[in-house]
Design a protein around this nucleic acid. Structure first.
Lengths: 216, 216
DNA sequence: CATTGTGAACGGATTCACAGCC
DNA sequence: GGCTGTGAATCCGTTCACAATG
């Protein structure tokens, strides 16, 4: 079975396992059992074992998993062993927040380009690099062979920017604008939409107190 | 059957239906069929009908759904008909981005408190209100009977802030820090964790070019 | 006749239970 | 004894098929 056959729900849990392992490593824990990971993540131990087993047998029976080894394996599976290069388009608060977080907390992803259209913003410093005008996207993407882009632009611009990015060679887009980015099927581009206001709406449903939730 | 018994996957789709309906309304579309919604959202028509049916029979056989009526119903189900009040804790770039987006794009949620600990930030203006020091959280939450909080604080502070919030009466937390907020079972607090770097990691898996391209 | 609403069938994801191994 | 890895059993979400209805 190849990676492509593993279901999305499993893939979505991998970063959660990775974070748990990072935390254990930080606490100098060397071995974890699936039960330990279960307590940290909230997923059942069987599920964790089964998820990992899709990609190989990484544990030791009777003992557990080596934190360091398993962490490396998961990074490899996700693709964080690569020198991953991304660009980020739209340097409003969300773009800056995301960039800063990525630069300071995620050493396995390198932001090689940050773009905006606002003259007030273009040229300002983002850590050790400048924010460029979006007219320079093509050059940067091609020069660095970037295939992942994050877009945090105004919603009206999202589709046009995405079309450009795809034309320049981007094959994966993390879209934070509240719209669904449409992509031609045959281009085989992966789009992941994250709509922050939907996350809040979803929570609202559960946030209403018990009385308002009674039967219909 | 109570709303609480409806599964999470169904609830997560409601905001997506709502956004689709909003867009239709903006285009002056008055009636949609489940098939129309299917094409917009990508979910199957049967699934959409079944999802809606958990909450009632909102359509007309042979015709479809009134966009306006269905939209109102879904807002009611999610709880957006209320004068929802939320507080947001942590006024870094992410907090400001989220607050701005909520204030300008989401008229059904009102931010009644924005808090930070940094003296540089406290007292500055966030649209038409001030950012307050977190020592004032209790007062604001109790005065406005707030039950939903958004936290965008540094990860080390997340658990302590959450504990405080819960003590003050918060029953739903949208957590943007890269940690799992732990809550005592019997408190019946709903926590929704959104980790932005996980979203990127998840995309990386599919972004590697030898793998299949999908919509996550 | 078109479309909703829904029990039944199906299939994928989770849990169970235990064999295999340290 | 303890824990992993995994087939079998179960659960749950999706799809199917169609009766109900404007």
């Amino acid at each position: 079975m190849s990676y492509r056959d593993v279901s999305k729900v499993v893939v979505k849990r991998l970063p959660i396992y990775l974070r748990a392992l990072d935390n254990q490593l930080r606490n100098s824990v060397q071995i974890v059992s699936s039960r330990d990971l279960s307590q940290i993540t909230g997923f059942s131990a069987e599920q964790i074992r089964k998820d990992l087993a899709y990609f190989g047998a990484f544990g030791t029976r009777g003992t557990g998993y080596s934190v360091d080894y398993l962490r490396n394996k998961i990074m490899q599976i996700i693709g964080l062993h690569e020198n991953n290069r991304v660009v980020i388009v739209g340097m409003g608060h969300l773009g800056i927040a995301f960039a800063r977080h990525t630069i300071t907390k995620n050493p396995y992803v390198k932001i090689v380009g940050a773009f905006d259209i606002d003259p007030e913003v273009v040229g300002t410093d983002l850590f050790d690099q400048n924010i460029n005008h979006i007219s320079e996207m093509k050059e940067v993407i091609e020069a660095h062979k970037v295939n992942v882009a994050i877009i945090t632009v105004p919603v009206q611009k999202a589709q046009a920017i995405s079309d450009q990015l795809i034309q320049y060679g981007i094959t994966a887009i993390l879209n934070f604008t509240p719209t669904t980015i449409l992509v031609e099927e045959d281009l085989k581009v992966c789009v992941h939409n994250v709509d922050l206001s939907m996350e809040l709406q979803c929570l609202m449903y559960y946030g209403l107190d018990e009385r308002q939730k009674v039967s219909i």
